[in-house]
Nucleic acid binder design. Structure first.
Lengths: 193, 193
DNA sequence: TGTCGCAGACTGAAAATTCAGTCAATAGTG
DNA sequence: CACTATTGACTGAATTTTCAGTCTGCGACA
């Protein structure tokens, strides 16, 4: 398959971004990481901004995949459990997860200064909020949709905030997980009104 | 006064950082923004890292100032109100606030890749969490301290997450403010158990 | 008259991007 | 089947751009 090297570049980009940040991504380092020439990067992705955009897409696809993996594996567990699992997925000390979270956070932060990234980012965020709202509706089926969405926005927003704290070493993993679990309780309890 | 231009450089730096990020700060752009030559920047602040350090200091002094301004001005309003005010401070479309939030977010994001920054950041975060926990204890005086701290950690974490979304154009200001107000309600209600 | 505050042109290094082609595979053709 | 035309993937070696930091000197004024 000819998409081999292309994919290698995207995987390499995720790794380099997780290691150095978006701003620290050097084409030469990326080329070395992916085991290709710098020119090939330009062949596949017009320019630096191009790789950034495609890497963002790549990362959010990958995250979707491992999210749904767990969903399937969970089997007949209850909805509340599934929600918790899904949100806690982000807080694991596994290279792939850490890499994804770091890169996601970086891309999100870069979007503040690079409007071209905003479109993809907004789409991915919206989809995520929607997924979480769906899970919430399984837990509290009678809640009106707007309330579910607001809850999902708060939960995902919190996740992003805590994730950055975790990655910057300000928040131990177990504590982050605990805060997320409590936040879920808090949200679910108020949804029952 | 000879500190005129020096100050102009710091103010310009705050503006440029808000526009381009810490990582996007270019000496030439800063010079233009402040209406001085690039050489003058080096004259007053040894090097790039020097301006960054001084600008961050400049910005956090400014933030302290306007935080306490509002606290004083509030007068004899109730504790709940004060908490809300204090947390919503971060979400205003005023250049100064935007500059501050941006710089804070940048700093937080950079800390992931630059461990030297972590110390100051951790201290500032802890102080913030503590302040919020104090405000919460005014609202719900009978709550045990650990529960207050956890609530404060969630609220401040959420704030950071939403702030990034706001700055990256993914979340309109009014909606952000609404989510924060709701989050406060949700947290306060569960503290009464 | 020396030194402080300052500007504009400049430099060297690092990084992004392009160029000019090679190579391997595939398709058409007599 | 032999051949050649074409194309997509790929590279090493430039070229161009970007940027932090420096050099030279000038005017004000103590």
């Amino acid at each position: 398959m000819a998409t081999d090297r292309r994919r290698a570049i995207l995987e390499g980009a995720a790794r380099v971004i997780a290691r150095r940040g978006v701003r620290g991504l050097r084409m030469e380092e990326l080329a070395a990481e992916a085991g290709v020439s710098t020119a090939l990067i330009y062949y596949h992705f017009k320019d630096r901004a191009g790789i950034l955009r495609h890497t963002l897409e790549f990362i959010s696809d990958r995250a979707d995949r491992y999210t749904s993996d767990v969903e399937d594996a969970a089997g007949p567990s209850d909805a509340r459990e599934e929600l918790e699992q899904s949100l806690l997925l982000e807080f694991q000390d596994v290279p792939e997860v850490r890499e994804n979270s770091t890169a996601w956070g970086e891309l999100r932060a870069s979007a503040i200064f690079e409007p071209e990234l905003r479109g993809d980012l907004a789409r991915a965020t919206l989809a995520w909020i929607h997924d979480v709202a769906d899970l919430l509706s399984c837990v509290r089926p009678t809640t009106p949709a707007p309330a579910l969405t607001a809850s999902a926005e708060r939960l995902t927003g919190l996740l992003e905030g805590l994730s950055t704290r975790w990655l910057s070493g300000a928040l131990p993993l177990t504590h982050a997980r605990e805060l997320v679990r409590e936040a879920i309780s808090v949200e679910i309890e108020t949804l029952s009104d």
